[in-house]
Simulated assay, not measured.
Amino acid sequence: MGTRRTSLPGVGAQYDFTTETGQHISVVVHHDGRRFIGFYEQDDPDACQLSVPLTTTEATALAHLIDPAPIDAVRTEGIDLVTEHIPLGSRSPYGGRLLAETRARTRTGASIVAVLRTHSAHPSPEPDFRLAIGDTLVAVGTREGVDALSEIIAEG
């Protein structure tokens, strides 16, 4: 199962994946935190069978049911910080390049606080850490900053 992220300018981001049984599921995450989960026809990925709106609290509760230990948003005196896993896919221009080359914090304000590999974790990676296709970047920042970082990692 692979997850595809699509930027929705002015809205947020859409995450699509297909289960092993061929069911297409989509989650739309709005900049304001609202989420919608959609279920699509197997033979027509554009035909939505059902769309369920979720508040941030409901999305968190659902995540806890699916994975009892997801990474949650951290709320700090009215400022929302989020922690998100960002996959470094085969289309990313950063595979094989140094972490510093992303200029993540300078460009987005979001920080890459760890890099997860298949059999290892690299907390607090240094700027000279070499990224690899298949890595998962753990990012912390505002919703807007983390969304921007996801786009940069995916597209350059």
Results as ranks from 00 to 15, higher is better:
Asp32Tyr: 02
Ala63Pro: 03
Val27Ser: 11
Leu98Pro: 02
Glu77Leu: 09
Arg97Lys: 15
Thr60Leu: 11
Pro53Val: 10
Phe17Asn: 07
Leu88Ala: 08
His31Lys: 11
Val82Trp: 00
Ser51Met: 12
Thr18Glu: 15
Ala59Gly: 12
Ser26Cys: 12
Ile71Pro: 01
Ile86Asn: 02
Glu20Val: 09
Arg97Asn: 06
Thr76Leu: 14
Val29Gln: 14
Ile25Gln: 03
Ile66Trp: 02
Gly96Met: 06
Glu84Tyr: 00
Gly89Gln: 10
Val29Thr: 07
Thr76Ile: 14
Leu50Met: 12
Val74Leu: 13
Arg34Ser: 12
Glu20Tyr: 03
Asp43Asn: 14
Ser51Asp: 08
Ser26Glu: 14
Val52Asp: 02
Thr60Phe: 00
Val74His: 06
Ser92Phe: 05
Ser51Lys: 14
Ala59Pro: 06
Phe17Pro: 00
Val52Ile: 15
Thr18Trp: 00
Pro68Met: 02
Phe39Asn: 04
Thr21Gln: 10
Gly89Cys: 04
Ala59His: 04
Ser90Lys: 10
Leu65Ser: 07
Val82Cys: 11
Phe36Asp: 13
Phe17Glu: 07
Asp80Met: 01
Arg34Cys: 01
Ser51Glu: 15
Ala47Phe: 09
Thr55Pro: 04
His24Arg: 15
His85Glu: 10
Thr21Asp: 13
Ser51Ala: 13
Val28Met: 04
Tyr94Ser: 08
Ile86Gly: 01
Thr18Gln: 14
His85Val: 05
Gly33Ala: 07
Ala69Arg: 13
Asp67Cys: 04
Asp43Gly: 01
Ala61Gln: 13
Gly33Val: 10
Leu50Cys: 05
Arg35Asp: 01
Glu41Phe: 01
Gln49Ile: 15
Pro68Glu: 06
Ala69Phe: 02
Thr21His: 02
Phe39Tyr: 14
Phe39Trp: 05
Val29Glu: 14
Phe39Ser: 08
Leu65Trp: 03
Ala69Pro: 00
Gly22Val: 06
Glu20Gln: 10
Gly95Ser: 12
Cys48Trp: 00
Arg97Cys: 05
Leu54Arg: 08
Pro53Met: 08
Pro68Ile: 03
Asp80Gln: 14
Arg34Val: 01
Glu41Ala: 13
Gln42Gly: 00
Pro93Tyr: 03
Ser92Pro: 07
Ile25Glu: 07
Gly22Cys: 11
Asp80Ala: 12
Val82Asp: 03
Leu88Asp: 09
Phe17Asp: 06
Asp44Leu: 04
Pro68Thr: 07
Ala73Val: 06
Thr83Leu: 09
Ala73Thr: 11
Thr60Trp: 00
Ser51Ile: 06
Cys48His: 02
Asp32Glu: 10
His30Ile: 01
Val52Ser: 02
Gln49Thr: 07
Ser92Asn: 08
Ser26Gly: 14
Ala47Asn: 11
Asp46Thr: 12
Ser90Met: 08
Val82Gly: 08
Gly89His: 04
